[in-house]
Nucleic acid binder design. Sequence first.
DNA 1: GAACGATCATAAATCGATTTATAACAGTAT
DNA 2: ATACTGTTATAAATCGATTTATGATCGTTC
Lengths: 339, 339
Amino acid sequence: MARRKGLTIEDVARAAGVSIAAVSLALNDKGTLSQETRARVKRVAAELDYQADALARGLRRSPMGTIGLVLRPLDAIGSYTLNGVDFFSRLLAAAAVAAMDRGIGMMLVPNLLRSPVPAFAYSLDGYVVAEPEVDDPVVRRLEDRDIPYVSLGRNVARPDSPYWVSSDDEGSMAAVLDHFASAGARDIVLVGGTDSNGWNQDCEAAYRAWTAGAGLPPRVLRAAEGAGIRGGRAVAARLLRDGVPDAVLCATGRQAVGVLEELREAGVSVPGRTLLATASDSEHARTASPAISAVDMHPERLAEGAVDMLHGLIHGTPVAERVRLPTSFFVRESSSRAG
Amino acid sequence: MARRKGLTIEDVARAAGVSIAAVSLALNDKGTLSQETRARVKRVAAELDYQADALARGLRRSPMGTIGLVLRPLDAIGSYTLNGVDFFSRLLAAAAVAAMDRGIGMMLVPNLLRSPVPAFAYSLDGYVVAEPEVDDPVVRRLEDRDIPYVSLGRNVARPDSPYWVSSDDEGSMAAVLDHFASAGARDIVLVGGTDSNGWNQDCEAAYRAWTAGAGLPPRVLRAAEGAGIRGGRAVAARLLRDGVPDAVLCATGRQAVGVLEELREAGVSVPGRTLLATASDSEHARTASPAISAVDMHPERLAEGAVDMLHGLIHGTPVAERVRLPTSFFVRESSSRAG
DNA sequence: GAACGATCATAAATCGATTTATAACAGTAT
DNA sequence: ATACTGTTATAAATCGATTTATGATCGTTC
């Protein structure tokens, strides 16, 4: 690596005719310098366009002005190529933007347990951990290193921690299920994921509560997150054997697409015989034919909420706790009896 | 900030019964240590799960394993809230993922000239600069600091620099214009942006070349990128006065939506009287009614190409130069005469 | 004029690594 | 015993900042 030019504190000190200590104290408004010296140093520094080296500065444990983002579900899948998976790419972009708007940087960091970890990982000011799992080792690692973090999605790794921002999964599920019910569906299947995160847990709990309340029998099937469309097809194949339901609510858009394909190939009409929807909107869902009804969790708002909370935690200012943000349910052709 | 626990090189040295120098040399496979010592130190370090502090290390000018991303068009607009603007959020997410897949971090960095710049900005290993402008001061700043960078979109700030990755704008324009022509359009308007970047330049040049080749008169209007839908409406208002064209090709999806709205309100049928398309696909374009035909520039591929090129530049390995990547044109209702 | 307080600036230690120059040692030749 | 090689480990300088302890200067006061 070529060495960078980099103006150092020494250059400023020389130009201002003071010691490097004076420069540091002046620029950070500390110590007991005279107003005059302080002003002069600041002026000189500004003229030279001096900027303190972030690394040397961080070495003394000043905040780095940068946070990390860990996407646990993608760590689990082992692939970060997000083709057609809207939620995480929207979340990622939104988090970067939210961080930037607050004057801090944001880095996507892969599985903190895989080695080698990216060099920076443990020098960041804090983390947003998306959908941690029960006993999540990444959460443990962050706690070991005393790195502040907030969870995006309920923090099932630390049920007592109040520092999380989540979509209102109960509301989402109720919206979809009410919609199904009002179209006359009685046998409604939930297709969930297998990761032990808050989203899966809360969606299933909400589903069970709703079915119990409606006096309908719950039927839950699961497909691994990583299986994608294939997972949806496998689940649908089982449904074809066990009994075709009136409606299917899939956790992910890709599962929904798989279910759609498998059912249609077997001659089951969607939405004619079976209604279909997904709890997380995606390009897949929107461009499927028929387009699949979906819940938009508004990852942009979630990202902003999480970044705000983390920012507060890092700076020791009071923050909102256990935040649940509303979602939107978009009815599309796959669940419209009229269509 | 509470001080972090952090195992230091000293802890490892003590545990292995050697000096800190020996530890450093062993772990970096440098110097003249015996195989035995080297192995022992490595074993101890692994046992303790030691990881060298990225900052202390960077202080000595080792690569940081992190690159930056600057989105110049958004710097220009002054807002990073990317509502409905697909291209940059997809680019952002894809770049983060591409970087991560190569074991490096990626940070979104705002305008390097605005102060204060994020602390890290000048410590990063390199930059991807999206759509630099003519005489772009950010490019100059990076060069001043000897920070390697590649341009995403032709580097009009440094016409001789071969280090850029761009969409094939000539191909995109030809695809759309041929499509318009085959539907019988003769009076085809181009609506471009006002930023002086490679995309605007190349799109307009391709348009002019194509119209010249086809023996048709060029008609170019412009709307500022920041004006969004409103800018599109303003342009369309002018078209209504000056003469309604057979087809309109807008640079951005938002401009296209604005044109669509204004024309329809004036009673001009789209696609009946006037065909419409945009050179950059977006959610806006897909969900408009009628859906607007659009070019997908595949920001994911562009991001990967740029990250690869930058990675090569940083490590001094040979890289491809002046890369043009193909695009896809999706015909939708807004330009389908049959529909 | 000596002693004392205020006020202001600086020297020097420190953060945790990398890297160079040097030292310690064993083995061989003289 | 001395000198000379290699081989291997370490001491110490360095990166660019922050921060504490110290010191210098000046004006008051007795």
